[in-house]
Write a protein that binds this DNA or RNA. Structure first.
Ligand SMILES: [Zn+2]
Ligand SMILES: [Zn+2]
Length: 183
DNA sequence: CCACCCGGTGAT
DNA sequence: ATCACCGGGTGG
């Protein structure tokens, strides 16, 4: 007597390889697929694609529970009015980082300096680009440049990093808008 | 000053 | 392994 343990294999036809990939992901995305299997306009699809990776990241972040990228905050800006808020936040972060550092103490994460890298916003025009321009210096030297195509560089990442969550929009841009270098 | 590049290294 | 953020160095 033989036991048929894997029945799906017997099918033999091309089962979508995505399933394997999706497996490691959340069911929520699967639901999306089911709800709208074919009614996509490519545009819609693109957005979902982007969101899904963002969600994945957020999930991971939530798990690790140590969000808070502090670039260099040291000047008066953060201390003056928002000082109290900053301090409170700091305390909380310290607590959380305590657990994190236990695992990653070896890394550049200091006890009070998490230094997490920011991620592309996913909604700005450069982020929505799907292909490299292949013309900028970064594209030409992709192997060594360690840089994303200049036309795909996220607008948010070009801005100065947010020191802490501001209650009001008091950010004052010193000068002109920065534009990507080289065309 | 600033745009530009280099390269360590976090994130996947 | 690849990708690409970001700190720092450099030339104009
Ligand atoms: Zn390019
Ligand atoms: Zn963006």
């Amino acid at each position: 007597p033989h036991l048929q343990q894997s029945s799906e294999q017997a099918g033999g036809k091309g089962s979508p390889p995505e399933i394997t990939l999706l497996n490691s992901e959340f069911d929520s995305k699967n639901i999306f697929r089911v709800c709208e299997p074919v009614s996509n306009t490519s545009l819609n699809n693109i957005e979902v694609e982007d969101i899904e990776q963002l969600v994945k990241c957020i999930d991971a972040e939530t798990l690790i529970l140590n969000s808070g990228y502090v670039p260099a905050l040291s000047s008066d800006l953060g201390k003056s009015t928002l000082g109290s808020v900053g301090v409170s936040l700091n305390l909380v972060q310290d607590n959380l980082s305590n657990s994190t550092e236990a695992v990653e103490a070896s890394g550049p994460y200091s006890l009070k300096n998490p230094k997490k890298k920011r991620r592309r916003c996913g909604v700005c025009e450069p982020c929505l680009r799907k292909t490299n321009c292949e013309e900028c210096s970064c594209c030409r030297k992709r192997k060594t440049s360690h840089r994303i195509c200049k036309k795909r560089k996220c607008e948010e990442l070009k801005k100065p990093p947010p020191p802490i969550t501001l209650p009001f929009e008091v950010r004052q841009r010193s000068c002109k808008l920065s534009h990507s270098f080289e065309a």
